[in-house]
Nucleic acid binder design. Structure first.
Length: 554
RNA sequence: CGGGACGUAGCUCAGCCUGGUAGAGCGCUGCCUUUGGGAGGCAGAAGCCGUCGGUUCGAAUCCGACCGUCCCGACCA
């Protein structure tokens, strides 16, 4: 196939768009791949859509290869289905009414709809089943942005598995996980599969696929020795051991005027900040004030705290703190507090300095179990300097894009929607479900974030919009056409830049667009019926006879 | 939802403080010239200065509200 640049809708830009910060945003807009219509809502222009379809095709092939069947479910969905699963409250859910007043949602994912169809699976003899589709998802995100990373409307491949039991689900899950690894491999993306939080999807186990990039919304924690990787939200790094002061037989009050932070406290007392404790009072959604306690050098990871509490929480207000502690922030501690105390595992052993619940005073030698009775949980956010739980190596932190997420759902959707089957024993049981999502737009964003230089994008061959970009310099039109014809006959997709532009502009556009192979047809090579072939990634250039192009690039 | 920045031609921006005929570069149209890394010349087209309201003889400019975009935070399958 030969596409002529002179005929394409391919609006490249010389400058970065003013409102772009993320690299993927800048380069995809400048390269004429995409345009934003409104916040978080984008059009894929012809060039960008070619990339999108290539990404889809790789996903499609790997889904098909493990027996997942492609279908298509609608966007417009009865609200009732979401009421039945109790997901009708989700703030990100777009809702609308038709002219008769009937209510609909624009779904953010299709568990409800696919479970609705799965009601037609009636016997264990029909299991397992795996279904998928590519379809538009709608999410009323409070803060869309960062180019194609956080969108309000996007296409997702979502697959669903249906099994008779947990064992079957484990097999389906492994099949999908294997397919995901092959997909990311073919996409040329650096991706790490890690344990993850399930969030509002429910279910028991989930696995995130994180692509480390310059822009992103997740943090990938990795051991320098490559034996540990996790999402920061659940990463369990090992904190360094504190240097404790002398052990005390009982707590001692100490006056600490104007000390507001743990660092200041440690300075004031001349002790290791890791030997202090940090109190964070939170209010749960049922109105209880709970004291969360971590080491002075740690920060609380809210996702972990909520998981430990089993319910959402928010920082307590000043009034709530006064009422519960009789002191204000900066001097709070667990000793004497009447409510529940949840302490991080790092506080299990040793004596720490804690607030005395008296403004301007702290307690020395506070010991869990002796001076207060906490419930222990993993609350602390891992941070740089933590130690790998596997090998003791150093943990490294990287910003990452979540490009895929797979879940073991169990009966979370099948039970409320009545998607049951009759098992071998004659009993009716809910289907055991899994769901498996991947967003091509995020794949594209992550690819651009990972593969670019100061001149533009460097696509991997597997998803490049075209295979070869031919730059025709004035006077070499004939050779350019010949080269295009030879490559076309050899099965390559060719972008032929036949525009009436100066060569510099064409080279700049070629670098920006980032097709892996650039061919220049110009006077330099004209006399020997040859062209210059340049590798976008390495910059290596060589001269090839037009007749040999098919063989040389094959 | 909190904090911040911004909104003027297709794009990137100046003008605003100190109110008085709306500007530049790039791009676009025509012609000339040039052609292996975003050339040059001549001539042109192109903007309801985000919207609404207020102040004023007069508002891109001052004031207010709203809308939109981007960033940080909260939130997030």
């Amino acid at each position: 196939m030969i596409a002529r640049a002179s005929k394409l809708f391919l609006p490249t830009l010389r400058d970065d768009p003013a409102d772009a910060e993320a690299v993927n945003h800048k380069l995809l807009v400048r390269g004429g791949f995409v345009r934003q219509v409104t916040g978080g809502v984008w059009t894929f222009l012809p060039l960008g859509w070619r990339v999108h379809r290539k990404v889809e095709q790789i996903i499609r092939e790997e889904m098909d290869a493990i027996g997942t069947q492609e279908m298509l479910m609608p966007v417009l969905t009865p609200f009732e289905l979401w009421q039945q699963t109790g997901r009708d409250y989700i703030p990100e859910l777009f809702r609308l009414k038709d002219r008769k007043g009937a209510e609909y949602v624009l779904p953010m994912t299709h568990e409800e709809t696919v479970a609705f169809h799965a009601r037609e699976l009636q016997s264990y003899r029909q299991l397992p089943q795996m279904l998928y589709h590519f379809s538009i998802k709608e999410r009323d995100e409070p803060r869309p942005g960062k180019g194609l990373i956080r969108l309000r409307e996007f296409i997702m491949k979502d697959a669903y598995s249906f099994d008779r039991d947990e064992e079957g689900l484990a097999k389906s899950f492994d099949l999908q996980r294997g397919a995901y690894n092959r997909i990311f491999d073919r996409l040329g993306l650096e991706v790490y599969g890690v344990e993850a939080e399930s969030g509002m999807m429910g279910g028991k186990e989930s696995f995130d696929f994180l692509a480390p990039t310059g822009a992103g919304e997740n943090t990938l924690v990795r051991c320098e020795n490559g034996d540990f990787a996790a999402d920061l939200e659940i990463a369990r790094g090992v904190a360094r051991p504190p240097v404790f002061p002398e052990t005390l037989l009982s707590t001692e009050e100490v006056e600490t005027p104007d000390v507001r932070t743990c660092e200041a406290l440690a300075d004031f007392l001349s002790i290791d900040v890791a030997a202090t404790s940090k109190a964070m009072p939170v209010t749960t959604d049922d109105g209880m004030v709970v004291l969360a306690l971590v080491r002075g050098d740690d920060r609380i990871e809210p996702a972990k705290l909520d998981a430990a509490l089993g319910k959402p929480s928010r920082p307590a207000t000043d009034d709530e703190i006064r009422a519960a502690f009789g002191a204000s922030g900066g001097s709070l501690g667990p000793v004497g507090f009447k409510g529940e105390v949840v302490a991080d595992e790092t506080l299990r052993h040793g004596q720490f300095v804690a607030g005395a619940n008296k403004d301007g005073w702290h307690l020395l030698g506070v010991e869990a179990g002796r001076d207060f009775q906490p419930r222990f949980a993993d609350l602390r956010a891992s941070h740089e300097g933590d130690i790998c739980p596997v090998c003791g190596g150093k943990l490294q932190f990287e910003t990452a894009i979540e490009v895929g997420h797979i879940f073991k759902l169990g009966t979370r959707y099948s039970a409320p929607l009545g998607a049951n089957f009759v098992d071998e024993d004659g009993q009716e049981k809910p289907l055991i479900m899994g769901s498996y999502g991947i967003g091509p737009a995020r794949v594209i964003a992550a690819t651009v974030e990972q593969r670019n230089d100061e001149n533009g994008i460097i696509w991997p061959a597997s998803i490049a919009p075209y295979d070869v970009h031919i730059v025709v310099v004035k006077g070499a039109e004939e050779v350019g056409e010949q080269a295009a014809a030879v490559l076309d006959a050899a099965g390559f997709d060719v972008l032929l830049d036949d525009r009436d532009q100066r060569p510099g502009e064409k080279f700049a556009d070629a670098d920006l667009i980032g097709i892996p192979i650039r061919i220049t047809a110009g006077k330099k090579s004209l006399e020997d019926e040859a062209v210059d072939v340049k590798d976008r990634a390495t910059g290596a250039e060589r001269r090839v006879n037009v007749a040999d192009l098919g063989k040389e690039l094959g």
